[in-house]
């Protein structure tokens, strides 16, 4: 029993990190309808940016906040300079995906060129431990969990309770009609990339804290978990991505506790496939263009 509880604790901690990235990914994909594989490399960039700020003697949570702001700006620039012109020229959905894969690889090697191929570490940041009903968490894990929950709730409120949030969902569902309502869809897309970039920055630093040591492969390795969490939760749904992240995190850690840890990913993705067979559009379908594209 204690093994199970311990594994669930690890799973929740991992799930919070996955959720943080998945919430950013799902909002960006759900609203702008771009399956941005570069997100993985951007996670890596964020992790290294946080690392260099720590080297300058910054507090890790201040570094996380500053990295989020920097990644938000970088994401908007990335979209405006590369992806938006492609969309304007009528590049297909798959064509844009391939470009994001290529951009991700290029960015990954830029990281290697600057930071080198060796692993680096933020050092020992876990802090003291806190016990909740037999679940043991470090302070860092709890802070990351709290950040993920607060950002998820804030995003959910933005999307469902504010006129600008509704405009974001409307732009996602039907950009032509959205423009016909007077919505400045370009501004909506900019804000979407800004939010997604900020979450990517926070997730990159959180990943680096959680994994203790990392190298240039950090982001792409975890991106697949984040995409799985986003799809599982229903594309465009922040609370779905949060729950999806938790499911992926807990299943992989529990499976790892009771079997060969090498198979943990197989169990996590088997659960994903099973759940999608039952609910093809994810747990909380948004009916966005991107969700329809994935579900067929």
């Amino acid at each position: 029993m204690s093994v199970l509880i311990e594994a669930i604790g690890f799973g929740i901690a991992l799930g919070a990190v996955i959720a943080l990235g998945a919430v950013g990914f799902t909002v960006q994909f759900g609203i702008s309808n771009v399956l941005n594989i570069t997100y993985g490399a951007l996670l890596t960039v964020a992790a290294y940016l946080g690392y260099y700020l720590l080297q300058l003697g910054w507090n890790v949570w201040v570094a996380l906040a500053v990295t989020s702001v920097a990644m938000a700006v970088l994401s908007v620039i990335f979209n405006r300079l590369l992806l938006a012109p492609l969309s304007r020229r009528g590049t297909s959905f798959v064509g844009v995906v391939i470009v994001t894969v290529a951009a991700g690889i290029i960015l990954q090697y830029c990281v290697v060129a600057v930071a080198g191929p060796d692993t680096v570490s933020y050092g020992q940041l876990s802090g003291s431990t806190v016990k909740f009903a037999d679940l043991v968490f470090t302070t860092s894990q709890l802070i990351i969990l709290a950040i993920a929950v607060v950002l998820m709730v804030a995003l959910h409120m933005l999307l469902t309770r504010t006129q600008f949030g509704r405009a974001m969902r409307a732009t996602s569902a039907n950009p032509v009609v959205a423009r016909g309502c007077g919505i400045d869809t370009d501004r909506v897309i900019d804000v979407t990339w800004l939010i997604s970039g900020a979450l990517c920055g926070a997730a990159g630093v959180a990943l680096a804290i959680s994994t203790v040591t990392f190298d240039f492969t950090l982001g792409p390795t975890f991106l697949i978990y984040m995409i799985a969490a986003a799809v599982l939760g229903g594309i465009g749904q922040p609370h779905g991505a949060m729950l999806g992240g938790m499911v992926v995190g807990v299943v992989s850690q529990v499976a790892s506790a009771y079997s060969n840890p090498a198979y943990q990913d197989a169990y996590a993705f088997a659960v994903l496939i099973l759940m999608l067979l039952i609910r093809p559009r994810g747990l909380f379908s948004a009916g966005t263009a991107s969700a329809r594209r994935l579900a067929g």
Binding site: A167, R169, N174, A178, C181, I183, G236
Partner: peptide
């Protein structure tokens, strides 16, 4: 229309 939005939300978007 905006399929994933409620009728109320569609009308609110019309009055954006």
């Amino acid at each position: 229309v905006f399929d994933p939005l409620k009728v109320r939300e569609n009308l609110l978007m019309g009055g954006y």
